[in-house]
Amino acid sequence: MTSAGERIKMARKLRGLTQTELAEASGVSVSVLRRLERGEQEGARMETWRKFATALRMPTMDLVGSRSEEDEEPTEPWESVKRMLNTPSALLDAPDDPPTVEGVSEALDALTPLVEADRYQDIAAVLPALLRDADLLGSAGRELRVRALQRVGWLLIHTRQFKAAEDALTRSLDEVSDRLQAAVTIDYMCWLLLRQGQLAKARELATQWADDAEPVRMTRATPAELSLWGLMLVRLSGAAVRDNRVGEAEDAMKYARAAAEALGHEWRFPPQLSNSTFGPLTVLMKTAENAGLAGHHSAVLHLGDKIAKRRKAQSARYKVELTSSDWNRHRLDVANAHAQSNDYSRCVEELLKINERAPEWLPNQHYARDIIERVIEDRRTLTVEMRDLAAAVRLPL
């Protein structure tokens, strides 16, 4: 099987470019390109492949090829969750006090503040019993099992345990009976595919469900229907821009913006449906993310200031907050834009704020690791803050 390094070497030679010329055109260091072509480095971030693809004028996935980025670093607290996820109902040990629908529902609701605070270790501690109890409810617990499996899948994606996340979401989709609840699972599946680098599959799935979810009349659509349609379009745009399909990405974002404008402000799903939000702020954040992927870092900084002001005004007027993970992911884009602009002090300042807000979230973000690595590479001496951030994302110095 031809490796990605061999494909990039072939594409470069077909276009008559030297390694130095391709490195300059893409903005990726020539040392990274050399290691990839020699097979000394097996992989790179999707954003790096996209830069090469843009310079070579080809779709990203034609360069990367079919792959399954099982970039898993399973941690012990999640092992019991995985075991329970794969234990047949017939083999479960029933507790002395049998579970009830009301009790499992309350336990699921109680996870919401832990999720919002990114307290992954605490969540992992309670999920095995919650999964067991939802399974033991039988047919009466079907809707609760869907919710529990969605929550497990969402959290496993965050902690980069992709195979287990796929198992949880597949089981969720097998049991779901409500169309809106099914769309939530599909939204998570699209996100999983994006994180795995399976861009074609993500585009296809998001396109299919965006077409199915499109309201017949915008004026009669419920906030949930508008939001799910908008989220599918955002996923489609994210997959398309990463696959170097700029026009397709812009078209999808245009329709997502229309859905957000129909809502008028950020809308938060009921906790029993999803932990997501959608609205004008989400669209602006994803627009900034796309701009960063395209290398338009000044646009990211401009949008970042605009989004921060709107977020503050929205919180005061509508009492709706963005999810912690969405907000922190956006601020990573801002930190990266500062780093790309050689404003390392602003970059470090932004990263420190994220780490203070979400110390369990940041170590799972390889994007953050890449940003900090860039800062460190370009500095002769490291500050205490830079060393602390490197330690936080497990970057060896």
Results as ranks from 00 to 15, higher is better:
T54I: 13
S89L: 07
P74D: 02
P95E: 06
D97P: 00
V81P: 04
A124I: 02
D96R: 11
M46Y: 04
A94K: 08
V28F: 10
G65S: 10
A125H: 09
E116H: 08
N86S: 09
F52R: 13
M58D: 08
T75F: 00
R119T: 05
R35N: 15
S26L: 10
E37C: 13
Q41C: 11
L144G: 01
T48E: 05
P95V: 04
P77N: 06
L130Q: 05
E37T: 10
G27K: 08
M46H: 06
P95N: 10
F52Y: 15
E69I: 13
E42G: 11
A117R: 12
R147D: 12
K82S: 08
W78D: 05
T60L: 04
A44G: 12
S105A: 13
R145G: 00
D109S: 09
R147H: 12
L36E: 07
T48D: 07
L92N: 02
P77L: 03
R34D: 14
L137R: 04
L33Y: 14
S80D: 12
L33F: 14
A124W: 03
D71H: 14
T112H: 04
R34L: 09
E76H: 08
E42F: 08
W78N: 05
A90L: 03
S105Y: 00
E70G: 06
S26M: 12
T100A: 02
S89F: 02
E40Q: 15
